[in-house]
């Protein structure tokens, strides 16, 4: 009788393929993400574009209303509004991706400081702080923080990271508590594994898997928040759909398309990101995340 034990390479390949098959829905969702991000960033990043300059109205404005050549019309100095809106959305999405990634990372880091303690009340301090901080609306915190610190992009990103981390900490603590009750964790304790081994190999992977869903759901929300802050002029003088709408509303009578079309593109991009986020969240069974903003 031949030895049926498979080689290590075969076993690894099989388990890798099995894992890929389990994640097929999420992997399929990466394709539309790549298409959307590819389209948004295909023109490169133009952080040097100032909305104040492109929305300035010269003595003899060269603006054109939307037509077949310029879908969203042009600005006073003849710049294509569609291209500018796309650049603005790319900038907003970049800010959101960076803020959400770092916010989730910070929340995980803070929660992990308490996780290895085996006591029942290990998250008590974190949850008490969160219950008091819950009273303060996140948007108000962001407006005060970004406005007070001079209204720059770095401050807006820092504020977003802090707010996201603060509100995600109780969610993560609940997930860690939930993970503690699993049969595999109880079995691991019975087998005599250390707490570190149990947390790192049993509980943390489940939490990390759900964090991808959190990221996907939060990105469109943060895009909206970033646009709202830039509408109020709190993220510095840089291209964003919020700033474009703020400058465009001054020209409501002369060139109404300058406020209308950037908003339409922003809504469409946020809608697509939200749909993809919900699908990713459903595929990974992330659950209903409490509204932060």
């Amino acid at each position: 009788m031949t030895n049926r034990r498979q080689s290590k390479v075969t076993r690894t390949t099989r388990s890798f393929l099995a894992r890929l098959w389990q994640m097929r829905r999420v992997l399929l969702l990466i394709i539309p993400y790549l298409i959307l991000f590819g389209w948004l960033f295909s023109g490169g990043s133009r952080m040097d574009v100032r909305p104040g300059e492109i929305y300035a109205v010269p003595g003899n404005p060269a603006w054109e209303s939307p037509d077949k050549e310029h879908w969203f019309g042009t600005t006073g100095n003849g710049a294509d509004l569609f291209e500018l809106s796309r650049l603005a959305m790319a900038s907003s999405v970049s800010v959101a991706v960076v803020s959400v990634s770092l916010g989730i990372g910070l929340a995980l880091l803070v929660t992990m400081l308490f996780v290895f303690d085996g006591g029942k009340k290990r998250f008590e301090m974190l949850n008490a702080a969160s219950r008091a901080g819950f009273l303060m609306p996140s948007m108000a915190v962001l407006v005060i923080f970004t406005g007070g610190s001079g209204g720059s992009l770095v401050m807006a990103i820092s504020g977003l990271i802090f707010v996201i981390a603060f509100h995600l900490c109780p969610v993560l603590t609940a997930w860690f508590d939930e993970g503690e009750g699993g049969f595999d964790v109880l079995a691991s304790y019975a087998l005599g594994l250390t707490r570190r081994e149990i947390v790192m190999n049993r509980i943390l992977p489940k939490v990390l898997r759900r964090l991808i869903g959190v990221f996907a759901v939060l990105v469109p929300v943060v895009v909206l928040v970033e646009m709202a802050l830039s509408f109020m002029g709190l993220t510095g003088d840089r291209l964003s759909c919020g700033a474009m709408i703020a400058y465009g509303q001054v020209l409501i009578i002369e060139a109404p398309w300058m406020a209308i079309y950037p908003g339409i593109l922003a809504s469409l991009v946020v809608m697509v990101l939200s749909l993809l986020g919900w699908r990713v969240s459903a595929a990974l069974r992330t659950g209903n995340i409490p509204g932060i903003f």
């Binding site: 709408i245 406020a259 209308i260 809608m271």
Partner: peptide, 18 residues
């Protein structure tokens, strides 16, 4: 409601004004 929430709120109110 979720689809409506994808619209930037400040843009919506400006659109109503226009």
């Amino acid at each position: 409601f979720s689809a409506f929430a994808c619209l930037p709120g400040f843009w919506f109110v400006v659109m109503v004004a226009i």
